[in-house]
Design a protein around this nucleic acid. Structure first.
Lengths: 363, 363
DNA sequence: ACCTTTATCCAAACCGCTTTGGATGCCAAC
DNA sequence: GTTGGCATCCAAAGCGGTTTGGATAAAGGT
């Protein structure tokens, strides 16, 4: 064995060899080859001060040569930190939040990678959600978790507080804003501004196609909508408000049925680009023109596969990057983990109101 | 301490207490409270035969009472299996495959949960992709990985074979079909059938809006398209073939420019629902009617937020559930892991050709 | 010249679990 | 009455790292 090693003069050879074998060196072997103790090698690699520069360099070089990487399970066990963040996705939520969720995940994932954390994703049956959190905490699968899509009657934070598992909420938990860390966009204000824009354009019959209103974000958006109307002494027509999963057909079907009313809406305020696309389709099918006969404002999560940019965006929108939110949420959480005695902190993002082609003065 | 334990007669109390503390029992404590060795307790809980039924029951009950769950890092270290599957997503791929990717992940995740596996997701810069795989293998972060979106000049499988890390390909690697395990739909045949349908309806000028053709799936789809044309002595007009990220604007912009040609296409064959929606928008904007003036067939990955079902689906499509593919890929991989000497196996799914509202005879 | 730092390095304990290689007691068999 | 076989259970040795509590030698202080 030692002959083999001596035979190769260039480090590359070793590494290539080991890689080809799928065989990795462990700390013990590495330290033996260096004639050093495991302690010293470990310290050298982890940047502790009690190692001479010369030794540290020697260790680093040999480690590089042999392609040494510490076994993560062993390290996690020894340090007691799992260096992973958990995301639990009940199937129902997942089906609903699909693309937005992924974009958030992508943002968070970037932050995790940057800090050496892993992301573990659990897709579970709705009924198993609590158990999933319990396992993450008890089996020490992750050092923290992110709560997705808080509802108006949220309870997960209680569970997590009980389990003593750090978490950050994407969105806000009504009534627990002070005691939890969260990141959210200003849903109410965004929809209030959007509504005002429509009102300023002369629209008075405005339809709202919202997400499921037991979700906190959707509820807030509706409040913003209603507040803006109320401020001008208008009141929302229940017939013009729908709330459901934000799919394309949801937008199309409801828009069609509303546009066929005796007193149809002249504008739509929509909670998601995908649904807005459905509305646009409906407008076309009714022989009308978007931005002329019918105005549409949608919330735009800045999903990469649904770009709404360009010189003049297709849709007038309230925009807030959910990927950015993911990055920030991850940063918040990693902060909390590194200092467990920090008090909760939050980030409130403001959506931009961007004028596109889909709005115009009321006909 | 022992007084505390004795005081609660109902198991619930203990569990609640521990949970509230976020304090979990370990094997040592559990075995001490049972007056048994760790060996016996471990064996009892893991179903080994050398434990008497009575003891096993006692152990099970106490474990339940104390809410004992084995620390996963410790278990992984001891068994040498990490009980996790890795998914590496370079940012570029991610941005392109966004919704399809998530749907696949969701399917795979269901299978993992069912089998007690975790999913670890790494979102990395493109340049770090190889390193990510190397780390997964060398640091033993996962027992296997899934390769997403193989290109025509794929190389990841070589790396993984070298690292001795089991993997399953979602899609196919040209030239390595025999030596790798994969799951794929029959892209070529699906697009051949779709093209034939259009030809049968009398269309001769058919446009192809394809995904990026350095990706294997897109290349195959194009082959299917061209084969079908060739079989009728037709040849594809390069001006009617585009290939790019499958976004909505990609569909809309290109459809518009094509429809404005002197000799415009009467039908579109599209690689993704999202792009097809863009095409439909373009058709509307040109004052034409989908399914009458212009026919559209799209591939439908059965994404949950873009349902294309109903009595008569909006789009005529070739459909294949990518979520199902995820489930199956995961099963394949877990099989491989449980029996490392298995030879590679694959699953070839056939897409359904479903007639919707978006096709009709050529005008 | 002697004692205290200081800089390096090491042996061994530990993290919490699985697993190997017995030990023990009991019963049927010779 | 010894022996062999079973059924149970256990002590201890890993797994591969990190970390504690010195040991050793060189440097510095008086």
């Amino acid at each position: 064995m030692s002959d083999f090693f001596r035979s190769g003069s260039k480090g590359r050879t070793f590494k290539a060899f080991w890689d080809e074998m799928g065989n990795s060196v462990n700390l013990k072997e590495l330290s033996q080859r260096l004639q050093l103790s495991q302690t010293t090698v470990s310290r050298a690699l982890n940047g502790y001060p009690e190692v001479s520069p010369a030794t540290r360099a020697r260790v680093a070089e040999m480690a590089e040569q042999l392609g040494y990487m510490p076994n993560s399970q062993a390290r996690r066990l020894a340090t007691g930190r799992s260096m992973a963040i958990g995301h639990v996705i009940p199937r129902s939520i997942h089906e609903m939040m699909n693309p937005i969720f992924l974009e958030f995940i992508a943002g968070a994932g970037e932050t995790y990678s940057k800090h050496g954390y892993d992301m573990i994703l659990s897709v579970v049956e709705d009924a198993d959600e609590e158990e999933a959190y319990r396992q993450i905490a008890t089996r020490k699968k992750a050092d923290g978790v992110i709560i997705h899509g808080p509802s108006r009657t949220e309870h997960r934070h209680k569970l997590l507080q009980g389990l003593n598992l750090p978490f950050v909420v994407h969105g806000r938990i009504p009534g627990a804003e002070e005691e939890t860390s969260w990141i959210d966009m200003n849903n109410r204000r965004a929809f209030e501004r959007a509504t005002n824009l429509l009102l300023d354009l002369g629209h008075t019959r405005i339809a709202l196609l919202n997400g499921l209103e037991y979700m906190d974000f959707a509820h807030r958006r509706r409040e913003g909508f209603e507040n803006a109307l109320a401020a001008r002494n208008l009141t929302a027509d229940p017939e013009l408000m729908r709330s459901a999963d934000m799919t394309e057909p949801f937008g199309c079907d409801n828009a069609i049925s509303m546009l066929r009313l005796d007193n149809p809406p002249t504008a739509f305020l929509v909670s998601s680009m995908i649904t807005a696309i459905g509305v646009a389709r409906a407008v076309g099918q009714c022989g009308l023109q978007t931005g002329k006969d019918v105005s549409i404002i949608t919330h735009d999560d800045a999903l990469s596969f649904l770009p709404n940019s360009g010189e003049v965006p297709i849709f007038t929108c309230t925009r807030s990057s959910v990927r950015y939110a993911g990055q920030k949420a991850a940063e918040l959480l990693l902060d909390m983990i590194s200092d467990p005695f920090q008090k909760p902190s939050s980030l409130h993002l403001d959506a931009e109101l961007i004028i596109g082609q889909s709005t115009g003065p009321a006909p």
